[in-house]
Write a protein that binds this DNA or RNA. Structure first.
Lengths: 108, 108
DNA sequence: TGCTCTTATGTCGGATATGACATATAATTT
DNA sequence: AAATTATATGTCATATCCGACATAAGAGCA
């Protein structure tokens, strides 16, 4: 998973503490963002494994292709809700979901 | 955890497929709701274990007491995002988070 | 009984995430 | 290279979720 240093670089619109209180809960924020990016990667991986296009997945979950693209890109406008609902729509079991969440950020 | 048959009963405002397409993705919907309720219980358990009031937890995560109450009650107006951010604010590690998610609904 | 602390429930204006659409940029195929 | 298919990016109106507030309900104690 070479594209996971992406995480830092791709702080595209993440607004983080910057727009907020500038000091404080950056520890949880970090874990939260990291989790989202990990789920995003998992969605893409699972969708591809099932040979589905973004359009197909979008229809399965009554969303749209652009939403799926943003999801997989780790766009900050995408919620954890949508990510997890996507994984569930892809048939991910709770065990598998847990495994995705448990897995910490790959070694550098 | 006797209060988990609550799940079915407490379909208070869950609107489910009812307001939606009436047929279709109830499998994922079920998993989704079940997950939320499990996280809700986990928040309450962890908050109590740390001897925090809802007001205190609310302040820690810059939310409000009423939101925390709704979270713990499994109110449908609460998102997965908020539930997970709460758990992270309570110092839950990703390992622990995974354990909460993995754990399937208790036997009856 | 009142008093204090905690939690529950209802509501609301404002904030954010949503699907949809248009369109751009790959990536494949012919 | 042109056509086709897949994915990316930007924008927008509406739906949903948010914190905040008011207030009720419960628990424990003076």
């Amino acid at each position: 998973m070479r594209e996971s240093k992406r995480k830092r670089l791709e702080a595209k619109g993440w607004k983080l503490g910057s727009a907020k209180d500038f000091l404080g809960l950056s520890a949880e924020e970090d874990a939260y963002i990291d989790l989202k990016l990990r789920l995003a990667d998992a969605v893409r991986a699972r969708r591809r494994r099932r040979h589905l296009t973004q359009v197909q997945l979008a229809r399965m979950m009554r969303s749209s292709q652009s939403r799926v693209a943003k999801m997989e890109a780790g766009d900050p406008s995408v919620s954890l809700d949508l990510l997890i609902r996507s994984l569930l729509a892809l048939g991910t079991s709770e065990q598998e979901l847990a495994a995705i969440i448990r897995r910490s950020k790959p070694a550098a």
